[in-house]
């Protein structure tokens, strides 16, 4: 009788251990599910320090350029050249002219929801992207939101955006690659959410981005 009692007790103990382990695994899986929907990149403090430092360096370089322009203010021709250079620069940024440059090429094989586009563009901007096109559509100020049609298709600039998606990004390719490929970064999060979606990122030279479609 004591043996029966002991066996039953041990059985109950073992059952309890198994139940506890299962509860713990379930709690962990819920946590992992929540992490998949986390829309922010990790290791922010280091990245932000790096970007702040890089940003300040760019501002100092800009100050030097502006100072040179001012010292030439007695030279009318220099002022006119400065205006022309600025017009040229802003026309490139605004997408009024076709542009080219080195950067990266991203291809995403299957459909994405709007939030992934928004987050990916944000990451590229954070990493200093100077110009971006998606499926040969050049992104431009404010007129380019990712809209959703009633049938679920994504609309960009009046055109339907269909997979595969090809992003052409002009900028510092090393910085762009580093930001996109960081642990917990946007591409890793997209991949973990859609494991069967093939994503390729390569450095590219002399990318050509079209002017805005009028």
């Amino acid at each position: 009788m004591i043996n029966d009692y002991l066996k039953r007790s041990l059985f109950l103990l073992a059952t309890g251990i198994v139940m506890g382990a299962l509860f713990s695994f379930q709690a962990k899986s819920v946590s992992k599910t929540n992490n998949i929907f986390n829309r922010e990149s990790k290791v922010n403090i280091f990245r932000e320090i790096q970007i702040a430092k890089h940003n300040n360096q760019s501002l100092r370089e800009q100050i030097e350029v502006l100072k040179e322009e001012i010292t030439a203010d007695n030279d009318r021709e220099a002022i006119l050249r400065g205006i022309t250079q600025d017009i040229n620069k802003y026309q490139m940024v605004l997408g009024e002219v076709e542009i080219r440059g080195d950067g990266i090429d991203i291809t995403i094989d299957k459909d994405l929801s709007i939030i992934w586009f928004t987050d990916l563009i944000n990451e590229l901007n954070s990493a200093g992207a100077e110009a971006i096109s998606i499926n040969n559509y050049r992104l431009t100020p404010f007129k380019d939101g990712f809209d959703l049609m009633p049938n679920g298709q994504i609309l960009l600039g009046g055109d339907i955006l269909s997979a595969p998606y090809n992003f052409k990004v002009i900028g510092d390719s090393a910085v762009l690659m580093s930001v996109l490929n960081q642990v917990g970064g946007i591409l890793e999060r997209i991949q973990s959410f859609q494991p069967d979606n093939k994503i390729t990122v390569v450095e590219a030279q002399n990318l050509i981005l079209p002017a805005n479609r009028l």
């Binding site: 009692y5 039953r8 007790s9 109950l12 103990l13 073992a14 059952t15 309890g16 251990i17 198994v18 139940m19 506890g20 382990a21 299962l22 509860f23 713990s24 695994f25 962990k28």
Partner: peptide, 25 residues
Amino acid sequence: NINALIFSFILAGILIGILVAAQFQ
């Protein structure tokens, strides 16, 4: 007393299980 002991065993088992699983993870 037996029921109380059984309940204690189950509770102890659950707690041990959680701790063991947490340790592995």
